[in-house]
């Protein structure tokens, strides 16, 4: 096989994996938008907050220790114990549920019926507030998150794909990061679980009813507040998953909140209201940007991925404003 075909295939495979990682972030946006019409600008910061909380719980860090020490002149930083990752994840989920309740109770309950732009602005405020709280609570240093996910290229895949090169000395077998492979499995399980939840559980059906029509859902006795707390909780859980995967790659640090920028073109392409759309959008963006960089990046000076993802999404927007899987926008006069 020629070099370009082999390497192109490797780029496509890695693009698919990257797309899954983008989709993990986009899923959180979709869940909240679908159920409440809110474009949650804070989704990236939620991933950061969840990952920081998980790390803090795992290593037994005292929350707000810098603040406590500054006020009381103490020198406490750690409880002196460590918690296994799985238990810490459960505790973090509880924290994210509490966060969802607080958000609903103190922000969005008071904004019911407001214009979408007002709700969007509220999420901007929430993002900056949450970032500040995360800083105060857990500190700004980079945290090396290790929940036991394997990292590095898979030897097995490399060795078992080397024959495709048919003696080509430049080909060493396909490179696929084990963490990306695990993330793909996690994303698949997450999507199946979310679809099953929304299709086959009472609460899931209530969520879908609220998403379709708030007033009608209210009229049949669905508790809107509860459903919105539930939706924010699920989005918080998705943020935790995204935070774990991205945090394992680079350490948990404040730039993690910027992964939301990677989700935007995915949403533009896949649609804001479709869970499968987030996945397919992620895959298209992932493959598209990687292939473009591989084929034309060197001629254009490189670093094309960030802007090309948006160009790709814009092209789709021109032909299909609601995204690939979004609900068609119908304005009745």
């Amino acid at each position: 096989m020629p070099d370009s075909l082999l390497f192109g295939t490797e780029v496509v495979l890695n693009g698919l994996m990257a797309g899954v990682l983008y989709a993990l972030v986009a899923l959180g946006f979709v869940l909240i938008y679908k159920a409440s019409g809110i474009f949650n600008y804070a989704q990236g910061v939620m991933a950061l907050f969840a990952a920081m909380t998980l790390y803090g719980i795992m290593v037994g860090q005292v929350p707000f220790s810098h603040l406590i020490n500054a006020i009381f002149g103490t020198h406490i930083h750690h409880f002196g114990w460590e918690i296994p990752a799985i238990l810490a994840i459960i505790v973090t989920v509880v924290v994210m549920v509490a966060f969802a309740w607080l958000v609903q109770q103190y922000i969005f309950r008071h904004l019911v019926g407001q214009e979408p732009i007002i709700l969007f602005m509220a999420t901007i405020g929430l993002a900056y507030f949450l970032e500040g709280v995360a800083d105060l609570m857990w500190g700004s240093e980079i945290k090396a998150l290790d929940v036991g996910l394997p990292q590095g290229g898979s030897f097995w895949i490399e060795e078992n794909t080397q024959w495709l090169g048919m003696g080509n000395e430049n080909f060493y077998g396909f490179f696929l990061d084990q963490l990306d492979l695990i993330a793909t499995v996690i994303a698949a399980v997450l999507v199946i679980a979310l679809v099953a939840f929304s299709q086959y559980t009472k609460q899931g059906r209530a969520m879908r009813a609220v998403a379709d029509d708030h007033q009608a859902a209210l009229s049949v006795g669905i508790n809107l507040n509860f459903i919105w707390v539930l939706v924010w909780s699920v989005a918080g859980f998705v943020a935790l998953v995204a935070g774990i995967v991205w945090g394992s790659k680079s350490g948990v640090q404040f730039s993690l909140s910027l992964i939301a920028l990677k989700a935007l073109p995915v949403l533009m392409l896949g649609g804001f209201t479709s869970i499968p759309g987030a996945i397919v959008g992620g895959l298209i963006i992932g493959v598209g940007e990687k292939l473009f960089e591989f084929a034309l990046g060197p001629a254009l000076g490189g670093a094309t991925e960030n802007w090309f993802a948006y160009v790709l999404a814009l092209v789709f927007l021109v032909f299909r404003p609601q995204g690939l899987f979004g609900e068609k926008i119908i304005e009745r006069v």
Binding site: F175, L258, G302
Partner: peptide, 21 residues
């Protein structure tokens, strides 16, 4: 050879695949 990485640099798969090649 020059391999630019856009801000903030959270995703560098393309650059490192090229280095691997």
């Amino acid at each position: 050879s020059l391999l630019p990485v856009d801000h903030p640099g959270q995703e560098q798969k393309s650059q490192w695949l090229q280095i691997r090649r």
